[in-house]
Design a protein around this nucleic acid. Sequence first.
DNA 1: CAGAGAATAT
DNA 2: TATATTCTCT
Length: 374
Amino acid sequence: MISSSEKSPMKPLSIEDSFNPHGLKVLVVDNDPHSLLHLTEMLISCQYQVTTCSLPTEALQLIKDDNKFDMVITEVHFSPDINDIEFLEIIVRETGLPVVNDSVDTITECIMKGACTCITKPAKKKVIQLLWQHVARRVLRHQLMKPTDKLENEPSSCTSMEDKEFSGSSGSDDVQMDDDQTKKHRMVWTDELHSQFVDVVKYLGIENAVPKKVLELMNVPGLRRGNVASHLQKYRKDLQILSTNIPQGFTKQSSVSTDAYSPVSKYNDSFISTQPITEVQQEDSSIQVPGGANSQVIENKDLFTTNSPITELQPHFAVQDSSTQLVPSGAYHPVIEKDWLVGSPPITDVELQMLQKFEFDNPLSSFHDLDYCL
DNA sequence: CAGAGAATAT
DNA sequence: TATATTCTCT
């Protein structure tokens, strides 16, 4: 076997750890005992580690207590007084985890709310077997970005001059070297860096996440405590804002009623405390930092999202609604658009390469199916 | 003294 | 606005 062993506590998520159903922690939320059981059995038979509950509130509590889930599968028809779609949305936002909904008739809506895919009941084993790849892909994305970590100009070239910028010439401080890069090291929290940050914070639990710890665990050369402290401050602030704007009771009609600012402003921000992933619903903006050769592209997408691009929404969702074509084989067949099916951008070559690199030991999955699953 | 977190500055 | 720096308190 492979990764079944213990996971390094230092790295909350690594490809090796996540790249296999074995031990992946799945939270299943379903108020129908039968389908819950069925799904659970199937998940377990596929080596997932399953936690179940029947209500969204329980789910949130579970997430709060144990923030180490890798994936959430949720029913979308709970009860008349619970807005399941909103629940799904919150889960997506707060956990940043791949969320799978198990109802077909709301697939479009769910996908638009951020679900990474949708399975039908009764769940087909084949489909279940492939679910882990959502987690894998998320991790992959993080991993892929890692090498890009050049947030700082490498200290090597900076000599000793960086600490005290004004070394010799004190008269006129026209120290206008090729600044931009040598002088002003104003770091940029790229998606990747931020993801790393979020992972660590999640790992620690937000209540234990203090700058020094986070810094250590992130282990990014050049990153300083102050950077983390500052970021953490903002992160918390955003969480707070989010928590006061969203949770409440998930009431049926509360959803999109125009007034995003409901007067009521103190709810259970509880669950957010442990699952601090938020998402700023802002469209991306890629900025080119004018730095000449060393220019850097900053993507500022889903701000506080951990599994960012997986649930990136494309406009072509409007395409048809209910009839999700399932083929007897059990696997999804993208009768419609592939990316419509799952709301994810098509897998890239690099990703595929990475996936294949880590291929197997795991006979359960085959990467052809990525097309359907991811 | 170190370090967290808030406040303030850029 | 995003990040840095300073301040205050533990």
